[in-house]
């Protein structure tokens, strides 16, 4: 492994299942001595938003890989019918279910995971254009977010890094 390897994640999604890839890989990178930068943009800003972070959800709609058999039903490859996804409470149910699955493998909730990354030295930034669009400021973000930066700033700070878009 090269001594100065640097990996950067762009988190653009706020769904519960899309918050974890950067957390898992970022944590693994830090554990292996790789510098980590995470840029939160658009819906991905929910991951660092104080009011939203603990409430990330997973809707069953369009999740074609989410089969009813995952919930222990003998239904083989049958998915959750999209028509059921519009029932009030379905998103809450699938979110609860996914959080349980995540807990079962020993992974912490999003907020705690992110704190581990910050404590491990990951550098976190919010996207300027998204912040302006949603009317947010640094006060909306959890401690540990370094700054609100432009896309150009992000390019400068990830010179030579490997970039993963999520």
């Amino acid at each position: 492994m090269s001594e100065d390897r640097h990996i950067a994640f762009i988190c653009s999604k706020g769904d519960l299942d899309m918050a974890y890839p950067a957390l898992v890989m970022g944590w693994a990178a830090l554990g292996n001595g790789i510098d980590v930068t995470i840029f939160f943009t658009f819906w991905g800003m929910d991951i660092i938003n104080k009011k939203r972070q603990a409430h990330l959800e997973l809707s069953p709609i369009t999740k074609t890989s989410m089969k009813m058999s995952m919930m222990g039903l003998p239904t083989g490859n049958l998915g959750i019918p999209n028509i059921l996804s519009i029932i009030p409470g379905m998103t809450a149910f699938t979110s609860w279910f996914m959080k349980k699955k995540i807990k079962d493998v020993g992974a912490p909730p999003v907020g705690e995971y992110l704190e581990m990354l910050i404590d491990g030295g990951a550098k976190l930034y919010a996207c300027k254009m998204s912040v302006d669009m949603f009317g947010l400021s640094m006060d909306d973000f959890v401690d540990g977010v370094e700054a609100i930066v432009t896309a150009g700033d992000f390019m400068d700070m990830t010179d030579g890094a490997q970039i993963i878009f999520i």
């Binding site: 693994a28 830090l30 554990g31 292996n32 001595g33 790789i34 704190e115 581990m116 404590d119 491990g120 030295g121």
Partner: peptide, 17 residues
């Protein structure tokens, strides 16, 4: 051992170190 301290004790890659 808090995360911060672990990374301070074994800097640059505590998992492997």
């Amino acid at each position: 051992v808090p995360t911060k301290e672990l990374f301070k004790l074994f800097p640059k890659g505590p998992a492997k170190k």
